[in-house]
Each structure stands twice: as C-alpha cells, then as structure tokens.
Amino acid sequence: MLTVHHLGKSQSERIVWLCEELELPYTLKRYERLASNMLAPPEYKALHPLGAAPVINDGDLVLAESAAIVEYLINKHGGGKLAVPPDHPDYATYLYWFHFSNGNLQSIMARLMTLLRLNPAEDNGPRVATEARLALALGLVEQRLSKTDFLAGNDFTAADIMTVFSLTTMRYFLPQDFSAYPSILAYLQRIAARPGYQRAMEKGDPGMPLLLT
C-alpha cells in the first residue's frame, strides 16, 4: 500500500497532487509544522535520515526526494502517464522543465529566503545577486508560458507538478509579487482549474489560502 507523508506547506504537496492526477490509491498522513519554528515535527523527521519532505512508503520501500518520487510513481504505478517518452519531440523540453524547479527556481528561492532572514541591506552583494538570479529564472518561466499552455508544451505533465509549488506555496516563505508576470498568473489559473489540483490541496492543506494571483 502506498503511503504519502505530507508535511503542511511543503514540497510534499507535489506527491499528493501527482497521486490525485494519476488516480492512484494511497493513504495520506498529514503532519503540521511546529508553531515555534515552522519546521517539521520529530515524527516526520524520523521517517528518513534527512528529515525533509516529501517521503513515501510503498510496501517496504521508503523513498524521499520529490523528483525521485514523482518518477518512481509515474513509472511504477502510473503507466508512464504525465511523463513524455524519449521518442516524443518534446522529450528534451520536458526533461529540462521537470528538473528546472529543483535545479534552479526552488534552490534560488531557498537561498534568497535564507539570506533575507539575516536582514541584509538592500545593496548587500549576495542579496542583489540572488534577487537578480531569481528574476532571471522567473523571466525564463514567463517567456516559456507566453508560448505554451504548460511547461513541456500544450499538455499538462509532471514538469508542471514539479514547478507549481515554487510559484505558489513557497510564497508563504518568500513573498513574491507576480504582477509583472502575466503569463505565469494565467498559467496558475489553468492549474487552479484542474480537479486533481483542487482535490490535492484540499486534502493536503485544508483551509490554506492558495497563492494563485
């Protein structure tokens, strides 16, 4: 039996969403962040040596890392649905955007979030460089979505599941004004209209306002 361990307001929302899109049977176990520091509770940290979300159990298997989990579930239980096969003309594009979030966007946002907690001056060198890098990454997403409905092309794929957290829930930790990115905002409305996304967010983070504008 597949069990998804979901930490509130975390990247594990990707896995809940994927299960809903693939219509997989799964057990959802929710964990709330500690009010004192917004970190995972001890029982979540005990699931995996890194103590970070997401984590799944599939029988005796314990698996972490959202990209690894997404690929595992698609290939093991999803029949390849929401992935793009190697013989498809958009395969390389899919691979790029699938890995773009954790490889660039999310890591830049996490770096900036950590820097801002130190309350650096606005002209602080690392802050300026990281803010510029984030603007560059968001500009790349904006440019892509001005041409296609979804990141890998006109069809929704796991590349979108990997990316949306950084454009939505991550803004609880690093507020962002997307008014300068109309294609991203239009994209988020397409995402919000998906029943699988709606079900996942209601199950995983019930009552949490979704940052889609």
Rank of each mutant, 00 (worst) to 15 (best):
A186C: 05
R33T: 07
V16L: 05
A180S: 15
L138N: 04
A186Y: 10
L73H: 08
Y172C: 11
A67D: 01
G207S: 11
A158W: 02
L136R: 15
I184F: 01
N75D: 11
A200P: 01
G59Q: 10
L24Q: 09
A180C: 14
L210T: 04
R14S: 03
R133I: 04
G103S: 05
L18R: 02
P41F: 13
P195F: 05
R171E: 14
A83K: 04
V70G: 03
L95N: 11
Y181M: 13
P49Y: 14
D149R: 14
R33H: 12
P41V: 12
L22F: 10
Y91P: 01
H99Y: 11
P54F: 05
R199A: 13
P89A: 11
H5P: 08
R30N: 06
K76D: 06
L136M: 13
T163R: 07
W17L: 04
R144Q: 12
A40C: 13
L22W: 08
L167T: 11
W97F: 13
N102E: 15
A53N: 13
T148I: 02
S107K: 02
H48Y: 11
F156L: 15
S179R: 15
S12T: 04
V55L: 14
A40E: 13
I56W: 15
V164P: 07
P126Q: 11
R111V: 01
L73R: 04
L145P: 08
S101I: 00
S36V: 12
K76G: 02
P49T: 08
L61D: 08
R127N: 06
L167W: 06
F178N: 15
P126N: 10
D177V: 12
R171G: 14
R117Y: 01
L63F: 07
S36G: 08
M201D: 03
T3K: 12
V16A: 07
L151P: 02
K45S: 12
A180E: 14
K76V: 09
L28Q: 11
A92G: 09
V84G: 00
L61T: 10
P86V: 11
L134K: 00
H5D: 03
Y26K: 12
Y187H: 09
E20F: 07
R171Q: 13
D123P: 00
H77G: 05
